Simulated scan of single mutants.
Amino acid sequence: MKKQADYIKRIEIKGLWGRRKNISWDLRPDVNILSGINGIGKSTILNNTVHMLDILEGRALTNNSQPGVSFVFSPEDATYVHFDVIRSFDRPLIDSGLLEKIGNQNVKSELDWQLYQLQRRYLDYQVNIGNRIIELLTSGMPDGQAKAAEVSFPKTKFQNLVDKLFSETGKKIIRKSNEIQFEQDGDILSPYQLSSGEKQMLVILLTVLVQDNQNYTLFMDEPEISLHVEWQQQLISLIRSLNPNVQIILTTHSPAVIMNGWLDAVTEVSDITT
């Protein structure tokens, strides 16, 4: 029987890059930052890890050409972990079949595609918290109203965070809309009309929000791309303010990402390679 882990305690990879290189990385439950020079294998380690987790969750088939990857979870009798992966590289979508399937002319890049998927998850999230709020308000419990307010707080916090981040350009989330939309100088904007940096930050924060404060692991490969240096500095604290139960595993070249108290969370690839 499958049991979900709270977080990953250790990642072990044998035979990386087709050579006699092994990785053994002990992880923190909160933040883990993988650093190193270009070409040393940060993205390769992340990609192989995610591929094996896909296999454990049944999202991908076993690929015998991949190096051996194994995990130690917490608790140790768990067999898989719930996770998300955020890709920051905003390349144009070239899959004509996917574009035809989407049927939305505004979805033109990889960030657009992530936003398109997140819009659906955001709607599901709102339905779930709406049902919980109704249940609490009609429960007859003396603290039902207070508990209902707690359930809706993360969504309000997300909206406040985004409004603050986008305040210099005058964009605000339209709070009465079930979908993510923005108002700017009287005009209504879809998320696909945002800048690359704004899209990227929205993707990250929406991904964290829709996990609904559950334990899970978030992988990010160089999330600083397209982000202003001030947003880079705030990134980790923003994520953890929305969900303190998330385990973050990321690669980065940016000193700004680790400046706000995360230097101890940095691991060099050379230190975990044998």
Rank of each mutant, 00 (worst) to 15 (best):
Met1Ile: 09
Met1Phe: 10
Lys3Val: 04
Lys9Asp: 06
Gly15Leu: 00
Gly18Leu: 00
Asn22Phe: 04
Ser24Ala: 14
Arg28Ala: 06
Leu34His: 04
Ser35Arg: 05
Asn38Gln: 07
Ser43Asp: 03
Thr44Cys: 03
Thr44Lys: 01
Ile45Arg: 01
Ile45Thr: 04
Val50Asn: 11
Leu53Ala: 01
Ile55Arg: 05
Glu57Asp: 07
Gly58Leu: 01
Gly68Asn: 04
Val69Tyr: 01
Ser70Tyr: 05
Phe71Gly: 06
Phe73Asp: 01
Glu76Val: 06
Asp77Val: 05
Asp77Arg: 00
Thr79Asn: 06
Thr79Ser: 10
Thr79Gly: 09
Val81Glu: 04
His82Leu: 04
Arg87Cys: 00
Asp95Pro: 11
Ser96Thr: 14
Glu100Asp: 09
Glu100Ile: 00
Ile102Pro: 09
Gln105Cys: 10
Val107Ile: 12
Glu110Gly: 08
Tyr116His: 13
Gln117Met: 13
Gln119Trp: 01
Gln126Tyr: 06
Arg132Phe: 14
Ile134Trp: 15
Ile134Asn: 15
Glu135Ala: 15
Glu135Thr: 15
Leu137Gln: 12
Pro142His: 08
Pro142Ile: 00
Asp143Met: 00
Asp143Asn: 05
Ala148Pro: 13
Glu150Ala: 08
Glu150Tyr: 13
Ser152Ala: 15
Phe153Asn: 12
Lys164Tyr: 06
Ser167Trp: 02
Gly170Glu: 14
Lys172Pro: 11
Ser177Tyr: 05
Phe182Tyr: 09
Glu183Pro: 03
Asp185Pro: 09
Leu189Asn: 12
Tyr192Ile: 13
Ser196Pro: 09
Val203Ala: 03
Thr207Pro: 14
Gln211Lys: 15
Asn215Met: 00
Thr217Phe: 04
Leu218Ile: 05
Phe219His: 05
Met220Lys: 02
Glu222Arg: 08
Glu224Trp: 04
Ile225Asn: 12
Ser226Pro: 03
Leu227Cys: 01
Leu227Val: 02
Glu230Gln: 11
Gln233Glu: 11
Leu235Met: 08
Ile236Cys: 10
Ile239Phe: 06
Asn243Glu: 02
Gln247Tyr: 06
Leu250Ser: 04
His253Pro: 10
Ser254Pro: 10
Ala256Thr: 13
Ile258Phe: 14
Ile258Pro: 15
Ala265Gln: 06
Val266Ser: 10
Val269Asp: 12
Asp271Arg: 12
Thr273Met: 13
